[in-house]
Write a protein that binds this DNA or RNA. Structure first.
Length: 207
DNA sequence: CGTAGGATCCGCT
DNA sequence: GCGGATCCTACGG
């Protein structure tokens, strides 16, 4: 079965609408080391200036510039002094929005992914978590701004089989205290690779 | 199974 | 200076 690339117009929608559409899609990175492809099973939406948890909340900065640009580009950022996380930029040009890629199942190139993810105890953990995902796929800061819908790009976003709505779950974002009341997180219920780390978010501060 | 603490540094207040 | 869209290891039950 052949998968086609996403079209930019399909991604130029509100992050909350795009997020569930990315479940089941494939992200593929072809590098000199080899190619790793993974099926997305967990994502989170971040949006504009009404979302306190979004990097774009306080306006445009050097770091978050890509979030404000055209949909279909990759937004890569550095966190916790050692990890990278990757997002698919969503929405119209000039509007900030992105979908964080939280977890995926490696479907191709597992051998290379294992060498990049020495600590993984099984293949389900290779891309189980946002920083694990970038590590398994070999995504780094040099890929910030890569166009995922360009056939010539090293990293591309491919359509997957339709995921039945009945197997999609939603909930608050992981590791984000703000906006706990909004279900910005989407995952495929029956996937073994959905991040178990602080599943469902951090312990509620109050109550 | 679970929780706790450390690693490590850039971006923003 | 502070804290973060995290992960790993160690250790207790």
């Amino acid at each position: 079965m052949t998968s086609r690339l996403f079209k930019r117009e399909e991604l130029a929608v509100d992050p909350l609408d795009l997020a569930p559409l990315l479940l089941g899609a494939t992200i593929e990175h072809a590098s000199p080391e080899g190619t790793v492809a993974a099926r997305l099973v967990e994502v989170e939406a971040y949006r504009g200036q009404d979302d306190p948890a979004s990097h774009s909340y306080r306006g445009r900065t050097a770091r978050n510039t890509v979030m404000w640009g055209f949909a279909g580009h990759l937004y890569v950022y550095f966190v916790y002094g050692m990890h990278f996380c990757a997002n698919v930029v969503a929405g119209e040009d000039g509007v900030a929005g992105a979908v964080l890629l939280r977890a995926a199942e490696v479907v191709s190139g597992a051998g290379l992914a294992r060498t990049r993810r020495k600590a993984a105890r099984n293949d389900g953990q290779l891309a189980q978590g946002p920083a694990r995902l970038t590590s398994a796929l070999g995504i780094g800061p040099q890929h910030n701004g890569v166009d995922l819908v360009d056939p010539a790009s090293p990293i591309r976003l491919l359509c997957g089989e339709d995921v039945p709505g009945s197997s999609i779950r939603t909930g608050p974002r992981v590791g984000v205290a703000a906006a706990m009341d909004t279900p910005w997180r989407f995952w495929i219920d029956d996937s073994a690779a959905v991040s178990s780390y602080r599943r469902g978010g951090r312990a509620r501060p109050g109550k």
